[in-house]
Amino acid sequence: MTAATAPAAALEVRDVVVRFGGHLALDRVSLTARPGEVTGLIGPNGAGKTTLFNVVTGLQAPQRGTVLLDGRDVTRLAPYRRARRGLARTFQRLELFGLLTVAENVELAASVRGRRRPGRSADEALELVGLRDLADVRADELPTGKARLVELARALATGPRVLLLDEPASGQSEAETEEFREVLLAVAGEGIAVVLVEHDVQLVMRTCSQVHVLDFGRVLAAGTPEEIRGNEAVIEAYLGAAPGVPA
């Protein structure tokens, strides 16, 4: 590699391979996310989107391939060390701390960040997603849509450079989705690299500057939303005859 590689990708995944027994979950998957942009990742259920997030965050070790954060190889780092280098995520299957209140969930994230990195306070993060009223509610009492927003606030409170969102808009109404999109763009506007996994294809197409399509563990296509819409392989495998209908 020469020094003239892509202009400072915040997150770069190269040729990642994950095998579960005989099943190839990720087959040489590469992905790049730049600061200030929302990068979309779409694909049918079981395509490997969540597995890719697990590899990036260190919860799943890949058989092959590398993960770079700000140009530094973190493939062998423990999950918490990657988090401290500015990587944050939300979970498709919610992982809020149910025994703690909403405020405690977010405070915990802010306290781990400490003063090493700049970032939102717990209050500001809750304010941004509009959940200050629910600060003292126990997290396991929230409906799914609200819980997803708390996960977002919690991830933001870590002061991330790269933010991975795993289906953050599922379970939200149309109006809520629109508000959520505003938040997403505002967050990206601060120079955070956002990677968005979402089944709401319309949302992805309207929000992302780059979209990757994953199918059976492979990157089927990558490019701008326009390019993806016109890609025949994608239409055939995923978007189907009625593009834009959520799976």
Binding site: G58, F97, L108, A109, S111
Partner: peptide, 24 residues
Amino acid sequence: STFGQRLLAFKDSPAASATLGVNT
């Protein structure tokens, strides 16, 4: 304390704790 929060968080979800930067 925040230590206590980390304990309860760890009990609930070690994976989420680690991805927030907690050295579990």
